[in-house]
């Protein structure tokens, strides 16, 4: 479902003397349907960068990044948008939404994008919010007013609203308490059973052990130290 071959990435900072910061020298990764691959490695080793490259958020300099049939590294913007709509979900660490939009609508958004009838989309959204223990009285408020943990759960609900064939999870359990953590891990298990291909970053080692079928240390992908 997801495959990365010989991918490289570096940042060029034009406004700081043209400094070149290589971050990935040789990325290789294959994730099949029903698998959950955990990315490990020290902070700054390039876990999030790899995820963003798969999502098309960061450009890939060379090599191949395939999601389904699409080579993200060379795809047109509209192909990537289609992929994000239909194929690849992403739960990031940050919640980025239009201010003042009610939580329920934020969660239903991916379904509405796909043309799901409004009542169905909102029904699915409220189910997820209930499962994730967001009190119903908050559903009409913007999630921007919520606590960090609540925002995180809204983000997760949004990511799971539609059953994407592939998912990227960036620290989905980071700021959650025990019960919510279990709920989220349960959602991930269900997605796996459904055949979703998942790439995840989990700092929480026991969570990682529980849901990941494999682990990959991104240090393997690091650029050869300027040698």
């Amino acid at each position: 479902m997801i495959s990365v071959k010989n991918a490289t990435k570096s940042f060029v900072l034009h406004n700081q003397g043209g400094a070149v910061i290589p971050v990935m020298g040789n990325g290789n990764l294959t994730v099949n349907a029903g698998e959950c691959v955990g990315l490990t490695g020290a902070s700054g080793a390039g876990k999030s960068t790899l995820m963003r490259m798969i999502y098309g958020n960061y450009l890939t300099q060379s090599g191949e990044v395939r999601v389904g049939g699409l080579n993200v590294a060379q795809a047109e913007p509209r192909e990537i948008l289609q992929m994000r709509k239909h194929t690849l979900g992403y739960v990031s660490q940050f919640l980025r939404v239009v201010p003042r939009v009610p939580t329920l609508n934020v969660v239903a958004e991916p379904l509405l994008q796909l043309g799901t009838p409004r009542d169905q989309a909102l029904k699915r959204a409220s189910e997820l919010l209930s499962v994730l223990r967001i009190p119903e009285r908050l559903w009409d408020l913007s999630p921007l007013t919520f606590s960090g943990g609540e925002q995180q759960r809204v983000n997760i609900a949004r990511g799971f609203a539609y059953d994407y064939p592939a998912l990227l999870l960036d620290e989905p359990t980071a700021s959650l308490d025990g019960r919510n953590r279990e709920t989220v891990l349960g959602l991930i298990e269900t997605a796996k059973e459904r055949g979703t291909a998942i790439v995840g970053i989990f700092h929480d080692e026991s969570a990682r052990k529980q849901v990941c079928t494999r682990e990959i240390d991104v240090i393997e992908f690091a650029p050869k130290a300027a040698a």
């Binding site: 940042f11 060029v12 900072l13 034009h14 406004n15 098309g56 958020n57 960061y58 450009l59």
Partner: peptide, 22 residues
């Protein structure tokens, strides 16, 4: 520069885009 909105904003390639974003 052209591209996907979040890509241009998060990973700008041209020096002017970088300046604009920063």
């Amino acid at each position: 520069e052209t591209g996907l909105t979040d890509q241009v904003l998060d990973d700008p390639q041209h020096s002017y885009s970088q300046l604009l974003v920063s």
